[in-house]
């Protein structure tokens, strides 16, 4: 009896959150899946022509936009040139491993120094509290034609020039930018992880005659494995959702479509955004939904794989 009443109480307390989450989280998720299966759905009128797999086939480039037109969609998924899907994969598998390794090295270095420790901690944390768009603007200046980078290295590469830049040069700058902005949080987590490792392990490794490098490699990094797992799972997810950095770095013209398409720098989320907000937004939201579902499945798949692998490697 008592227990039951307490149950009602608990639900009562949770109600505000549950209602808000229902409206803004659970319903949109289910609705997205629902919409992704609707044929010729119109957002403004709500009219559709029944259920279909056509939306998925279309964005994956397996079906034409209009029957007999011979026009296939290559923006989202294509093997012939850059596409949103493969761009996202590229960004993820380049930036995540590199930023995790760099963050780990910097955290180990900061942990090992005594003088100016606080100073360096602050310096490396700065990007975290700086606005993404502001950083993007600074990067745009650095990599401008007559920018700092070209001047220092005596180069003349149009890194992110709207007209002359190539996919490769834009992607290089984008990756550097993403890695740099991703570092602070990772360093923070690794540093707090290192501080939680009992000093006795460091002492034991020293008494056992291990050099600093060997102790780090064989003792300290394995002890840090829970943090490494956490960071890699979350940064994979973040990287799969990469979007704002492209705007921050390349958006000079306020028209989002032009920026990405001119340099083939679509990512999955960028594509979703375009389908929802682009010129044909009333009739293309079902494609956005399908892309969102695909993104969800990709992230889910990779996270499961990561957790499987981690079972063998992570020590708590």
């Amino acid at each position: 009896m008592d227990e039951k009443r307490n149950n009602y109480k608990a639900w009562f307390y949770l109600a505000p959150v549950l209602i808000l989450m229902g409206i803004f989280t659970f319903f949109p998720i289910l609705n997205t899946v629902y919409v992704s299966f609707l044929k010729d759905y119109n957002v403004s009128t709500g009219v559709h022509k029944g259920f279909t797999f056509y939306n998925y086939a279309y964005i994956l480039g397996l079906a034409e936009r209009y029957e007999g037109s011979g026009v296939y969609n290559t923006t989202f998924f294509s093997f012939s040139g850059p596409s949103a899907f493969w761009n996202t994969m590229f960004i993820t598998f380049v930036t995540v491993p590199i930023s995790v390794i760099i963050a780990l090295l910097i955290a180990l270095a900061i942990h090992n120094i005594k003088a100016l420790k606080k100073f360096f901690q602050t310096v490396f944390f700065m990007p975290y509290v700086t606005n993404v768009i502001a950083i993007g603007m600074v990067f745009a200046v650095i990599f401008a034609n007559g920018g700092v980078f070209n001047t220092i290295f005596h180069l003349n590469i149009p890194w992110i020039n709207p007209v002359y830049a190539t996919w490769g040069s834009c992607m290089t700058v984008l990756c550097i930018y993403i890695i740099w902005t991703a570092l602070p949080y990772k360093i923070l987590i690794f540093l707090s992880g290192l501080q939680n490792i009992d000093q006795q392990y460091f002492d034991a490794a020293r008494v056992d005659g291990a050099s600093k490098g060997k102790a780090s490699r064989r003792i300290i990094i394995p002890l840090l494995s829970p943090q490494i797992l956490y960071i890699s799972v979350t940064s994979f997810i973040t990287a799969f959702k990469e979007y704002s950095s492209i705007i921050g770095l390349l958006n000079r013209s306020y028209s989002s479509t032009a920026v990405a398409s001119s340099n083939d720098l679509y990512t999955i989320v960028y594509y979703i955004y375009d389908m929802m907000q682009g010129t044909n937004w009333t009739t293309s939201s079902q494609f956005a939904s399908a892309a969102a579902v695909i993104l969800l499945l990709v992230i889910l798949g990779f996270t499961i794989v990561e957790l499987r692998i981690s079972k063998r490697l992570v020590v708590y």
Partner: peptide
């Protein structure tokens, strides 16, 4: 410390949790 020829047993043992007993003993 590593050149003094000492063996040290810590209060909390400080055994490396990710290594087996064999590997722990092998590490030095």
């Amino acid at each position: 410390p590593e050149k003094r020829g000492i063996g040290l047993v810590f209060q909390n043992y400080a055994l490396y949790p990710h290594l087996t007993v064999y590997q722990n003993v092998q590490f030095p």
